[in-house]
Design a protein around this nucleic acid. Structure first.
Lengths: 194, 194
DNA sequence: GTCTATAGGGCGATAGAC
DNA sequence: GTCTATCGCCCTATAGAC
């Protein structure tokens, strides 16, 4: 036996994640079995469930984004309004994103499966809930915090969608542009005399 | 055989829905089986699936809210801004709600189960998607429409949550109040000289 | 790893209503 | 006869228990 020959191939979780994305792309989520993902990654079905509590989670592992955003809001200048603090943090989300290539593949797979779309939404809701705690430290009451977070996430979704489509723009610029769009949309209309 | 004696008890779907809510309340969603719901409603498990494509859906049947909101937006005064049209419609959502009593039971059951919370979120997303079509008829581009809808839904969620807690306020008043809160939250801060 | 309950789909049988 | 609601039985996959 050669020295340095590992007993198991490394990064079982990563292999499962890559195998799953690949299979979901080619066959669709519903028509892919957990056993198939595991086999493709050189593992057994049982081992899959050691890494992921259910089949959907294989596309949603990791808390980096939530942690990054919460940290960003906690660290924000106390002089900023809550929405400013949130949007600044959301504008740096790309710091924890994978390659745009990978994100686009993932977004497409998720959009193609209602089951994955559900999971995606609750993951976003989990992030929102985590940010309530961060705003709480700034003295924002939870109900109001959740409301402002929902608005900020709406801005972020629009900005991120644009950013995925336009390789040249920066995310934080698009967040700022979308925030301006928000201010305009909620302002009372200028009813010019007709 | 007596005249008027139906072969089956009527309203099988309603019986399933009531049995499910009751069982989810007492046992929780996960610990309730489809067979149990069906038995309680006097049906078999197989028949359950004739009415609902899956176990979660038993709490989410019906499209009344989506239809009501889409119709409200379609019928809105063309002079209103998109967000005004949306918020007006959302302020009348109570017209298609069940009793507050029933809503509170349902909200509690959904909040207690991650699986049901997921389904709840995607139902809201489905409504949002339907409203994109309604705003399209008003000449709003889809990406922008979805953004404004997400913001309006954030307002509506906060207003509805307050309305459920406060039996005396009207939903449309609370929507208006929350819209004012939104305008204040997104306005640049008045930085008084320090 | 093995075992098992449950979800959920396919297909056909049955039995009134018409 | 057709239509429609229900049930029966078979199957696989998920996911949790042991």
């Amino acid at each position: 036996m050669l020295v340095g020959m590992p007993r198991w191939e490394s990064d079982a979780q990563g292999r499962l994640e890559r195998a799953a994305l690949e299979l979901f792309e080619t066959q669709g989520f519903e028509r892919t079995t957990v056993a198939q993902i595991a086999r493709t990654a050189g593992l057994t079905e049982r081992s899959f469930y050691r890494y992921f509590p259910d089949k959907r989670e294989v596309l949603f592992a990791g808390n980096e984004l939530e942690a990054h955003l919460a940290a960003g809001v906690e660290a924000a200048d106390p002089g900023l309004t809550p929405i400013e603090a949130l949007l600044n943090a959301l504008g740096t989300a790309d710091e924890v994103f994978q390659s745009r290539e990978f994100l686009l593949r993932r977004v497409k797979v998720i959009a193609a499966s209602p089951a994955l779309a559900e999971r995606d939404l609750i993951k976003l809701a989990d992030i929102a809930e985590a940010l309530v705690g961060a705003l709480d430290h700034r003295g924002v009451e939870p109900g109001k915090a959740r409301f402002i977070i929902d608005v900020a996430i709406a801005v972020s979704r629009r900005a991120t969608s644009r950013w995925l489509a336009d390789p040249d723009a920066t995310l934080s610029d698009l967040v700022a542009q979308t925030a301006a769009e928000l201010r305009e949309a909620v302002a009372p209309p200028t009813r010019t005399a007709g």
